[in-house]
């Protein structure tokens, strides 16, 4: 891939004086066809779309995203559907960055070489594997790099300075700062404490920093946008799906509405 859409995206946001909006949905939730509609709707609103690869054992996720994985697997979604959904988003919204997110065993089962080739072909920009820390990068780093995919790494409140350095050296694209000590969907902590941690990471890394886990309201998103390069909304978007499980049009409409509100929130920061 010659274009670095992720770098372009953060440069554009900086020019516009706002944070990037990063949105997550699980691929194939609640089924492949509806998921395509939902992903396209969200892709039109966010700067970076995180597409979750469903996994039977999502250890770092709270009940909302666990249920999303279960719905997708029950609907029979396969990894090739995930790639097809990514490719569809890529052709429809060529300026929206795509990050595949999930757990190690799914790409490992396919083989990281094969996985990375298919992801790159689908127009994916970066990959975030929750349970592959920098120390275990040997299983994936080479394949990702060879295919021009960014390796996005997580940092958390429990990360020491040594670990921040380690992750900064191994990461590319952006750093995903987990705002809380816990699983996805928990309550966001004090914004001031998160800001302090983001500043600590900045002293080690020049990569853009996105903050996620626990951001649920437009107020929270606006607050985080004052100091982070990107704001990640996951469980809050996903939770629209079971709310409207019998009415797919209402589901898409609700998601668009929520995403627009978040998009406005991260714009408010212009200084």
């Amino acid at each position: 891939m010659s274009r670095d859409r992720i770098a372009e995206c953060f440069a554009r946001c900086r020019n516009e004086g706002r944070s990037a909006l990063v949105g997550y949905l699980t691929a194939g939730d609640p089924d492949v066809a509806t998921s395509e509609e939902l992903l396209l709707a969200l892709a039109g609103k966010v700067d970076i779309l995180e597409i979750g690869m469903p996994f039977s054992d999502p250890m770092a996720d709270g009940p909302v995203i666990q249920a999303a994985s279960e719905r997708a697997l029950e609907a029979g979604v396969l990894i090739r559907d995930v790639f097809a959904l990514a490719a569809k988003v890529n052709s429809t919204c060529p300026d929206t960055c795509i990050v595949l997110m999930g757990y190690a065993n799914v790409p490992y089962a396919l083989g990281f070489e094969n996985f990375s080739e298919q992801a790159a072909r689908a127009g994916v920009d970066g990959v975030l594997i929750v349970d592959i820390p920098p120390e275990e990068g040997a299983v994936c780093d080479h394949a990702l790099r060879k295919n021009g995919l960014h390796r996005i790494l997580l940092l958390s409140p429990t990360s020491s300075d040594t670990r921040i350095k380690l992750a900064s050296d191994a990461a590319s694209g952006f750093i995903y700062y987990v705002s809380l000590t816990g699983i996805t969907g928990a309550e966001m902590g004090e914004a001031a404490a998160i800001e302090q941690q983001v500043e600590r990471i900045r002293s080690f890394s020049s990569l853009p920093i996105c903050v996620g886990f626990g951001v649920k309201t437009a107020e929270q998103a606006a607050k985080v946008a004052t100091f982070a390069d990107g704001v990640v909304i996951g469980s809050h978007f996903v939770s629209q799906i079971p709310l409207h499980c019998n009415d797919h049009n209402a589901m898409v409409t609700a998601l668009k509405k929520t995403a627009s509100a978040m998009r406005d929130a991260v714009r408010k920061v212009a200084v």
Partner: peptide, 20 residues
Amino acid sequence: INGHFGRFGGRFAAETLMGP
């Protein structure tokens, strides 16, 4: 040093757990 027995084992954990 990272807990590998041959090619197995290791520490495939979320970042939050790496410190603990």
